[in-house]
Simulated assay, not measured.
Amino acid sequence: MKHVKAATVLPEELILEIQQYIQGETIYIPKLEKVREKWGSRSGERQRIDERNEAIREAFQNGEKISRLADDYFLSVETIKKIVYTKT
C-alpha cells in the first residue's frame, strides 16, 4: 500500500470536509470492489494453487489416500479433506 499526500490528489474543499472528521492521521481508502484484484491473481499464485488442488482431487478420485496426499503435498490431513470434499 503506497501513501499519497492528500493535497496532491484531492480538491481543497474535500480536504477541508475530511478535516471535520480527522486531522493529522493516516486513513485508508479501499479500492472499489469492481477494481480490486483477487489475491494471487497478479503473481499467478492463485492459479498455481488451483492447479495443485485439482491434481489433489484427481489423485483422490483415483484412489490415493488422504494421508498420503498430505505427505506428498506437505499439507495437513484437514487441509486435504477440505480440498477433496469441497465442491468447486
Score class of each variant (00 low, 15 high):
3 H>A: 12
5 K>Y: 06
6 A>G: 09
6 A>F: 14
6 A>M: 12
8 T>I: 05
9 V>W: 07
9 V>Q: 12
9 V>A: 06
10 L>K: 00
12 E>I: 11
13 E>S: 14
13 E>V: 06
16 L>M: 07
17 E>W: 07
17 E>A: 12
19 Q>E: 15
19 Q>P: 02
19 Q>F: 05
20 Q>V: 09
20 Q>R: 15
21 Y>P: 00
23 Q>Y: 07
23 Q>F: 11
24 G>V: 10
24 G>I: 06
25 E>D: 12
26 T>E: 15
26 T>D: 13
26 T>H: 11
27 I>M: 12
28 Y>R: 12
29 I>T: 01
29 I>N: 01
30 P>G: 10
33 E>L: 09
34 K>G: 04
35 V>C: 07
35 V>S: 11
38 K>V: 02
38 K>D: 08
39 W>A: 11
40 G>F: 08
41 S>R: 07
41 S>A: 06
41 S>E: 15
42 R>M: 06
43 S>H: 08
44 G>A: 01
44 G>F: 03
45 E>M: 08
45 E>W: 11
46 R>V: 00
47 Q>D: 07
47 Q>K: 15
50 D>W: 04
50 D>Y: 07
52 R>W: 00
52 R>Q: 09
54 E>R: 10
55 A>L: 08
56 I>Y: 02
56 I>E: 03
56 I>R: 03
57 R>G: 07
57 R>T: 01
57 R>Y: 05
58 E>T: 09
59 A>D: 01
60 F>R: 07
60 F>W: 09
61 Q>V: 00
62 N>S: 01
62 N>F: 06
62 N>K: 13
62 N>E: 09
62 N>G: 05
63 G>K: 02
66 I>R: 13
67 S>C: 11
70 A>L: 02
71 D>F: 06
74 F>R: 12
74 F>S: 15
75 L>H: 05
76 S>V: 06
76 S>W: 00
77 V>S: 10
77 V>Q: 14
77 V>G: 05
79 T>R: 15
80 I>E: 04
81 K>R: 15
81 K>P: 01
82 K>H: 03
82 K>S: 02
83 I>K: 02
87 K>H: 11
88 T>Y: 14
88 T>R: 13
